[in-house]
Amino acid sequence: MQYFIRIVALASLVAASTEAVAQQPRRPAPNYQVRGQLTNAPAGTRVLLIDDQTGQAMPIDSARTDAKGRFQLRGTVAGPGVYSLRVAGQRRTTDVALAPGSQLQLRADATQLRGTSDITGTPEAAELARMHQEQFRLMAHIDTLVQRRAVTTDTAALRRIGQEWDATFGAFRAAAQRVAGQASYVAPYVAATFLSGTDAPAEVAFLDSATTRYVRQWPASPHTQQLQRYQSMRQTTAVGRLAPEILLPTPAGAPLALSSLRGKYVLIDFWASWCGPCRQENPALVRTYQQFRGKGFEIYGVSVDSKKEAWLAAMQKDGLPWPQVRDEPSDTSVASTAYNIYKFPSSFLLDPQGRIIAKDLRGEDLTKKLAELMP
């Protein structure tokens, strides 16, 4: 009898265990794969795939390289999107277009991911990789132009540099428009990343039309939603509108209001210590400031640095003499809300009444505009 009871009890336990296992949620089967090979990545180097589409960096997969720099990422994504690939110990990342069913192959230099990533496997992933390579080449050329401008005083030479600068950006933006015009889930990302923040009538019209299409095709894309916010907020900072108030702490900790500078022409300069183009532009901006400061010109520098120490060090190294405040990055920061800024540097030129009269003037263009306003 006792033997029978033990058998029944054991059978009940097995049945209960089986039922518990059956009730446990099953992990979804992997629906993407990224096979990669990196140079300058010793064995054991960690590679991470990060979902930062909503503004919060969430690692969704990771792997380690073997002795030949090879790695493999396999996991699940809910839908098509653009994800970040990061190599541990490296500051720069690159973006990867992934969708359920993607089987990608990646080759890159671990120390220069964005500029060297060659990705194949889907048209979207390959197109996005080419965009990043083009962006990398663009910024390298812009660095060269900045260096040439820093040591040039000849007016004609400066004008040629400015023309080359405009042509370089123009060619890149034309390439970005081509990709943004495609029926691809990468299109909203390209438009939001490379084309937003402009007031050129033709580009504004393109973005308005593209965003309307994205709302129909990719309404859940965070980049579509970003572009919708951009459309709405662009009206707030349109030329002719009163610049939204800014009240942020100076290096000493005391708040400084933008409106306190009324009565002068003011350039609001959004920048950061980590922003290469910002730092390269600073010497020219210092010269412009010194030229027009005595005529009623002021700069209101807004740093978007997360670390105060980095901000202060950059200010000292670059010799920035104008008022500075810090807009610590967050979902409610001035840069991301009131001014809808997603690229740096960005600037707004205000008249003495605080109205926006121009945007993103740099170098010779800024000097020429100020000379017109304050002869």
Score class of each variant (00 low, 15 high):
222 P>V: 09
223 H>Y: 15
223 H>E: 15
223 H>I: 06
223 H>M: 14
224 T>G: 02
224 T>K: 00
225 Q>C: 04
225 Q>E: 12
225 Q>T: 06
225 Q>G: 08
226 Q>Y: 12
226 Q>N: 13
227 L>F: 02
228 Q>N: 08
229 R>Q: 12
229 R>D: 10
230 Y>P: 00
231 Q>A: 13
232 S>A: 14
233 M>E: 11
234 R>E: 01
234 R>M: 02
235 Q>Y: 06
235 Q>N: 11
235 Q>A: 12
235 Q>I: 03
236 T>C: 05
237 T>F: 03
237 T>N: 07
238 A>Y: 04
238 A>M: 09
238 A>R: 08
238 A>E: 08
239 V>Y: 09
240 G>T: 09
241 R>M: 12
241 R>N: 11
242 L>V: 14
242 L>E: 11
242 L>A: 13
243 A>C: 09
243 A>Y: 00
243 A>S: 11
243 A>I: 06
244 P>M: 01
245 E>D: 09
246 I>Y: 00
246 I>S: 01
247 L>P: 05
247 L>W: 12
247 L>T: 15
247 L>H: 15
248 L>R: 01
248 L>P: 05
248 L>F: 04
249 P>K: 04
249 P>W: 04
249 P>R: 02
250 T>I: 06
250 T>R: 15
251 P>K: 01
251 P>C: 02
251 P>Q: 05
